[in-house]
Design a protein around this nucleic acid. Structure first.
Length: 501
RNA sequence: GGGCCGCUAGCUCAACUGGCAGAGCAGCAGACUCUUAAUCUGCGGGUUCACGGUUCGAUUCCGUGGCGGCUCACCA
């Protein structure tokens, strides 16, 4: 039998001593009259005399984060996860049993406290305890009170510890919740219906990415975790749902980085009789409103800079932006015509030092050159619009320019935040695009879009003209909370399995 | 997957050029009637990520592996 660590043994001994007093170690309930947070917000600013005059009695509970003992005067800091309050404990103010329990408490234990509110000599808002109830044991020592939990790996793997000792972490996830609520408010107010579409799909479509594969036993069916909900949401447009949105997880079997987690949360919304230009305006409105509701303003601190979500955002056409920057870098006039021709596009990429994969067409080259020249520098919210058709198999072409689709991406903080387009609703053209993607796949592009016959068939029933957009929620929360890793805004990010053998 | 960096007590961190592995917090014992990173006295606490190598001697140098961070590539 392995030797139990002394710190654990001491805690266990304290717990057993409490049991010896006849106290239930894991009671079923505690009827609090107020949460700690409510006490602090409702009474925390009241003056000493006011509290003495009214003598407010309360019952509250939480986890013990600090104990300071002075012989007969003892102070305990209690947290309900949201706020903290000090409790004043003295032997002559409570039943003997309650004080015996107090003497056996460890940091991290849960207790209930009854008493009245007052201010100490040092003017600290405090509960003067007249009773103490044991609620649950913490058998493991917590991280240090002052430095907190610095080990970033433990913060991700044991998020509960991070939440106990790092108030800022709690704030981030509160902001995440407000972000989702603000988005739902915005869309609901515009007549959008929130829907849920399959997470397990027979064809992993709607985006260009590698999927996770799974299997349904009873149906003996191969299924993919979805990489996007897009094709199902557009089936709903066919079905007459004119405004729909979904906020849910996507799964992509690709690399992990500060901006990528294998499962991530995406907002997708679709609006019939709309188009990408209208969605740009709507996106500005939505993000400025969300920023106000989450952070209190439209200017948001992000690292060294301040992001402005005040409309309008900067707008750049993709080819125009590439030409402008390429012209500046190589010192001669670069034209859009060069980008549309395979030979000159390849030559230009070479001059700019952009490495190409074999088989890339002028559209892919243009998109790659754009990302290389521009992406990291797009810190303020910026729309990039009018993409090459070659990289946009689900978008509608411009009426006068079949090489270009009505599509934009929104960049902020140096990464892509949203992707939107006028939806391709011509089934014959959609089939041609899918077939084009199949050729890419045969050329070795594992991320090319799969053929989805069922989706093409749905389009044959007629889909109204529409605009649709996807917004990376995790990345948006990063920007709104000044977080620089996606793992800081996901409660339980994917971590490599530990090999403890 | 590549490159760079890290892993020492429950937590936060030291340990010079290879020479007895330390401090603060937390813990234990004690003092203390208003503290708030409480203070004071005393005490206990280590597979230095793992395995191997070099060496009289390895936390330290070398190799392999594990996990993590940053970054590049892919991607949103």
């Amino acid at each position: 039998m392995p030797q139990e660590h002394e710190l654990l043994a001491q805690r266990r001994a304290n717990m057993e001593a409490i049991a010896q007093l006849g106290v239930d170690l894991y009671p079923h309930e505690f009827d609090r009259t107020d949460t700690v947070h409510k006490l602090v917000t409702a009474h925390g600013e009241r003056a000493k005399e006011e509290l003495e005059a009214t003598r407010i009695e309360t019952k509250t509970c939480g986890r013990i984060l600090a104990i300071r003992s002075f012989g007969k005067a003892n102070f305990v800091v209690l947290s309900d996860g949201l706020a903290r309050i000090q409790v004043y404990i003295r032997q002559d103010s409570m039943p003997g049993l309650d004080f015996q329990i107090f003497r056996l408490l460890d940091l991290g234990d849960f207790v209930g406290v009854s008493g009245h509110l007052f201010r100490t000599k040092t003017n600290e808002f405090t509960i003067w305890a007249s009773g103490l109830t044991f609620l649950a044991k913490c058998l493991v020592p917590l991280p240090e009170k002052w430095h907190g939990l610095q080990d970033i790996e433990i913060r991700y793997r044991q998020r509960y510890l991070d939440l106990i000792v790092t108030p800022e972490t709690r704030r981030v996830f509160e902001a995440r919740s407000r972000t989702l609520a603000a988005i739902r408010d915005f869309l609901d107010a515009r007549g959008y219906l929130e829907v849920e579409t399959p997470m397990m799909q027979q064809v992993a479509g709607g985006a260009l990415a590698r999927p996770f594969v799974t299997h349904h036993n009873a149906l003996d069916m191969r299924l993919y975790l979805r990489i996007a909900p897009e094709l199902y949401l557009k089936r709903l447009l066919v079905g007459g749902m004119e405004r729909v949105y979904e906020i849910n997880r996507n799964f992509r079997n690709e690399g992990i980085s500060t901006q990528h987690n294998p499962e991530f949360t995406m907002l997708e919304f679709y609006q019939a009789y709309s188009n990408y230009l209208e969605l740009m305006d709507m996106t500005e409105l939505m993000l400025s409103e969300v920023a106000r509701k989450v952070t209190g303003g439209e200017d948001v601190t992000y690292g060294e800079t301040t992001l402005s979500f005040k409309a309008p955002f900067r707008r750049l056409s993709m080819r125009g932006a590439v030409c402008e920057e390429a012209t500046r870098r190589i010192g001669r006039e670069v034209t859009e015509a060069e980008l549309r021709d395979l030979g000159s596009a390849r030559a230009l990429a070479g001059q700019l030092g952009v490495e190409l994969e074999p088989g890339m067409g002028p559209g892919k080259i243009t998109a790659l050159v754009f990302e290389t020249l521009w992406e990291a520098s797009l810190v303020q919210p910026t729309f990039v619009y009018d993409f090459p058709t070659e990289v946009s198999p689900l978008s509608k072409q411009k009426p006068d320019d079949p090489d270009t689709v009505e599509r934009f991406e929104l960049y902020a903080g140096g990464f892509e935040l949203a992707n939107a387009f006028s939806e391709l609703n011509d089934p014959a053209e959609q089939r041609r695009r899918f077939e084009q993607q199949l050729q890419e796949r045969q050329k070795g592009d594992a991320e090319a879009h799969a053929m989805d016959e069922d989706y093409v068939h749905a389009l044959e029933y007629g889909m109204p003209p529409a605009g649709g957009e996807g917004v990376g929620i995790d990345r948006l929360v990063m920007l709104l909370t000044d977080s620089h890793s996606i793992r800081d805004v996901i409660l339980f990010p994917l971590m490599r399995a530990r090999n403890d053998s």
